[in-house]
Design a protein around this nucleic acid. Structure first.
Length: 470
DNA sequence: GCGTTTCTTATACAT
DNA sequence: ATGTATCCAGAAACGC
C-alpha cells in the first residue's frame, strides 16, 4: 500500500530508517535486550561530537513499552528526540517505527548524556560539587528568608533586560526552568521537550547540555542543601537524580504513566511529590526507596504541585479537570474514598498552574478560560479574577502566572513577546515588560529565590532571558 | 468513559 | 524580507 507519491517528509524518514538499518547491520547487533541499549547509544552518538565508545554501564536494564500509555506520539519521537537537537541532524531515524521504543533504565553516566565535546564539562561538574560543599545552616537559610521579607519591595520600573543576559540554553521548546538556589553562582537550568537539560552559568556565559530523558521535561528540582543533586521528572515516566559527585543521572522512579509535575516541601528533603498519570499524586520516600502514597486527587492530569511556604503540610494542585485544589497532607488519608480538599477553586477550562505567594497567604491560578485567579484571606476565600489571554496554541508552552518576591505582583507571558505584570492589589495588569532583544514569546518564568528582581523567562526556541533590577 | 477529529498557533531556517 | 517546513501539544467537541 505504498502511496503513489512520497512527500519529502516521508522520503526523508524512509531514508533514515534505511540508514539506521545499515548501521545496525554494520555493527552486527544481535537481538538481545542488553544490546538494544547499545543501539540507542549508537544512534545517539551518530551526531554527537563525542568519539565512539562503549557505554560503561554493564548490562543496562532496557525496557520496551508502549508510547501511547505515556503520551509520546506513536511515530517514535522517543528516539527522534536525539536527532532533533542538532540543526542538521537527520530526523525520524528510529529503527522501530511502531508502538515501542527502547529506553535505558538505571543510571546514565553524565559523560554519556553530555552533548558537548568530551570532558569539556569537567569544570562545570567540579564547580557544582564545590558550591554544594558549602554547607547551608538553617540559620543561614532563615536569614535569607528574613532578608527577603525586608527587601522585597521591588521597583517595577527598575527591571531591565541586559543583552548579555540572553542565551540559547537548549534546542527547541523549553518546558521547565529553574535557578540554582545560590547567591554566589548565578546559574539557570532549563529542560526542553526533547528531554534535554541545559545549564547556563550566567556569569561565565557557559552552557552545558545533557540528554538524560526521552520526552518533555516536566520538573527540575535542586536539593536546597546539596546543590550538586538535581531531580528531574519527565513525560517519559521517569524521575531521575542528577548527582554531580557520582557523575550520573540516577534512576529514582519509573512509571508507565507520564509524570507531569515535580515538587518537594522545603522541610522534607526525603520526600518527592509528583503528578502521575491522569490525576494521580505520588509520594516518593527516599528513606525506604519506594513510593509511600499514591492518591487519585483529580479527574485529569495534575499540572502543578505547590507547597505552602509557611505550612509545608498544605499543598495546592492545579489540574486539567478545570479545578485547582488545596489539600492538607496530614488528612488526605488512604483508601478508595474520595479525598477531601481544603478548598476547590473552579475554572471554566483546565487550570495550568496554582502557586502560593511567597508569604503563603495568597494563591494564584492560571487557566485556559483566560483568567488568572487570585485568592486571599485566612481560608483563601476572597476571590479575584483578572482577565488574561492565555491562549497559546500548538508551539508555545501554556502560560503560568508566577509570583515575584512578595505578595504584590504576578508575572506572566503574553503572545506579543512581553511579560505582563499583574498587581494583586490593583487586580489588573499594571505593566508589560518588553524589549527589542526578545525574539520569541517568553512562556515559562522563574524568579530567583534570593535575588529580588532577577526574573528568567524561557521561550519555544530554547532561549532564556533574564531581567534584572538595577 | 473512550477514541477520533479539529483547531489553535510561532519559530527557525533557507532562500 | 519572505516563504516554508515544522508537526504530533493540548484541549475541546463530537460520536459511540
Amino acid at each position: 500500500m505504498a502511496p503513489p507519491k512520497l512527500t519529502d517528509y516521508e522520503r526523508k524518514r524512509l531514508e533514515n530508517i534505511r540508514r539506521n538499518n545499515e548501521m545496525m547491520a554494520a555493527l552486527n547487533v544481535q537481538s538481545k535486550a542488553s544490546q538494544l541499549s547499545n543501539i540507542t547509544k549508537v544512534v545517539t552518538k551518530s551526531y554527537n561530537v563525542k568519539s565512539e565508545k562503549k557505554p560503561k554501564t554493564e548490562t543496562p536494564i532496557v525496557i520496551r513499552r508502549s508510547l501511547r500509555t505515556r503520551g509520546i506520539p506513536p511515530d517514535s519521537k522517543g528516539l527522534d528526540l536525539y536527532a532533533n537537537s542538532d540543526s542538521n541532524a537527520v530526523t525520524h531515524n528510529s529503527p522501530n517505527k511502531n508502538d515501542d521504543f527502547v529506553q535505558t533504565l538505571g543510571p546514565i553516566p553524565m559523560k554519556d548524556a553530555y552533548k558537548g565535546v568530551d570532558d569539556s564539562d569537567r569544570s562545570f561538574i567540579e564547580s557544582l560539587v564545590r558550591i554544594s560543599d558549602k554547607e547551608f545552616s538553617e540559620e543561614e537559610l532563615n536569614g535569607h528568608a528574613k532578608k527577603m521579607k525586608i527587601e522585597c519591595s521591588l521597583e517595577l520600573e527598575s527591571l531591565s533586560l541586559d543583552p548579555e543576559n540572553i542565551a540559547r540554553v537548549v534546542p527547541g521548546r523549553i518546558t521547565q526552568m529553574g535557578f540554582c538556589p545560590s547567591n554566589d553562582v548565578k546559574m539557570v537550568v532549563a529542560g526542553n521537550k526533547f528531554g534535554d537539560i541545559g545549564f547556563w552559568n550566567v556569569g561565565q556565559n557557559e552552557i552545558f547540555l545533557y540528554h538524560p530523558h526521552q520526552a518533555p521535561i516536566s520538573g527540575i528540582l535542586f536539593q536546597p542543601h546539596c546543590l550538586s543533586k538535581i531531580y528531574t521528572s519527565c513525560y517519559d515516566g521517569l524521575v531521575r537524580l542528577m548527582d554531580a559527585e557520582k557523575e550520573i543521572f540516577d534512576m529514582v522512579y519509573n512509571s508507565d504513566a507520564c509524570i507531569y509535575a515535580l515538587s518537594q516541601p522545603k522541610n522534607e528533603a526525603n520526600c518527592l511529590y509528583f503528578a502521575e498519570g491522569s490525576g494521580g499524586l505520588t509520594v516518593w520516600d527516599n528513606r525506604i526507596g519506594k513510593s509511600s502514597s499514591h492518591w487519585d486527587l483529580h479527574e485529569s492530569r495534575i499540572n502543578t504541585i505547590d507547597f505552602n511556604p509557611e505550612s509545608p503540610h498544605i499543598v495546592a494542585t492545579s489540574s486539567s479537570d478545570a479545578t485547582a485544589c488545596t489539600w492538607d497532607l496530614r488528612f488526605i488519608g488512604g483508601g478508595a474514598t474520595k479525598h477531601t480538599t481544603l478548598r476547590t477553586f473552579t475554572h471554566k477550562r483546565s487550570v495550568q498552574s496554582a502557586y502560593f505567594s511567597p508569604s503563603g497567604c495568597s494563591l494564584a491560578t492560571t487557566s485556559l478560560d483566560n483568567t488568572i485567579g487570585i485568592y486571599s484571606g485566612v481560608n483563601l476565600e476572597d476571590q479575584t479574577s483578572v482577565y488574561h489571554d492565555n491562549h497559546t496554541g500548538r508551539w508555545i508552552s501554556t502560560f503560568r502566572a508566577i509570583w515575584g518576591w512578595d505578595n504584590s505582583y504576578l508575572f506572566i507571558g503574553n503572545m506579543k513577546r512581553g511579560v505582563d505584570v499583574v498587581s494583586t492589589v490593583q487586580r489588573a495588569t499594571v505593566k508589560t515588560l518588553q524589549s527589542p532583544h526578545i525574539s520569541a514569546i517568553p512562556c515559562r518564568f522563574y524568579a530567583h529565590p534570593y535575588e529580588v528582581g532577577m526574573l528568567a523567562g524561557a521561550t519555544s526556541g530554547g532561549q532564556v532571558y533574564i531581567w534584572t533590577s538595577s
